[in-house]
Nucleic acid binder design. Sequence first.
DNA 1: ACAGAAGGTATCGAGTCGATACCTTTTAAC
DNA 2: GTTAAAAGGTATCGACTCGATACCTTCTGT
Lengths: 198, 198
Amino acid sequence: MEMDFALTYDLLERLASLLRAEERRVGKELGVEPVHLRALRFLGRANRYSDTPVAVAEYLGLTKGTASQTLIRLQGKGLVTGRPSLKDKRKLHLSLTKAGRAVVSRVNPPRAFKEAFAASSAPSSLDELFLELLTTLQRINGSKSFGICKTCAHFQHRGTGNSYRCGLTEEPLKVRETGLICREHLSLLNEPAGTNDS
Amino acid sequence: MEMDFALTYDLLERLASLLRAEERRVGKELGVEPVHLRALRFLGRANRYSDTPVAVAEYLGLTKGTASQTLIRLQGKGLVTGRPSLKDKRKLHLSLTKAGRAVVSRVNPPRAFKEAFAASSAPSSLDELFLELLTTLQRINGSKSFGICKTCAHFQHRGTGNSYRCGLTEEPLKVRETGLICREHLSLLNEPAGTNDS
DNA sequence: ACAGAAGGTATCGAGTCGATACCTTTTAAC
DNA sequence: GTTAAAAGGTATCGACTCGATACCTTCTGT
């Protein structure tokens, strides 16, 4: 039986995309790169076998050269300090500075996700949870929903056959177009009761 | 009541991290950047109102300048073609070339995710499903699990009090250390029955 | 008619990222 | 024990992302 993992993957990817955007947004506020946030979050939770450059590289899926470079920058920013291991002279043990911990506490976990998770009402399936998270995050971020045409509030089905049209552009739609992504998509879900926000 | 969204967020982030790594890996094979894959995937599914540089920018959470630049590169690689709109002379309609579609079909949806999703057996909770997906993806990718110390196969609890130790390093562990992430973590789940793979 | 909005491009600088090369220190093989 | 290999880190290079800014042209609304 064919599972609908493609749909789940779509939702997951879109969610990841929003989280990326959120990381960039928060990062810009604090003057750090997205990957800096991820590294700081990891270092704040790594044990004594794992607070080294290679461990960061493995965790984030980077080469050790890249990780080393980024960590040097983080040390330069005063968010991380490193001291050589006494047992193994090759190793460098990294830890967050006070400033580093302050950054982590600002983004861990992201406010938007927290709100979105709180707002999602007892989801029964993964897809449902993803969709709720997604919609809430999009509303918080003020980003568009980018849903599929036929799930849009503007979507109209005329007559009995395959006659569809878009209520926004007043244009007819071909059948295959109704399954494509639209930037003008307006979600039928999560519509606030009153939309007078001015 | 305090939800455990922090744990769920951890899993989601780790999942996103693996997908990032996967994007990089596949991208390198095909000679394209991760963001190229995301842009191609979008363009392959965008309708006629959404196949433009700004739409790509909005979807991926980028500025229009960045998106424009990336799309120009994609055109240079022969994966995307653009033709000016007839109705609106400002607009540029983008579409995938044959080569572009070939790339998308290679990564949509990623093989690893497909396998992982298929392998996860009727989970009772969302966190459980996440964890299964994660573990399977990690095994496929050959990446470490980076789990929490006290969930590790090497973790040992001696005596009656708070006396813990790591069976790998033979070292005692402090209580707060048992909640930290370890790069040597060995999952108790998903252990293959026979581990003779040589 | 005309100001402003919207779509695109060009350019600059900081930073990521992989690749390569090169250290030192530790470990394993002999 | 010696010695080769492995492991941890750093440095450097080039391609690319990404935001910011500036600057086009073309629509749109008044």
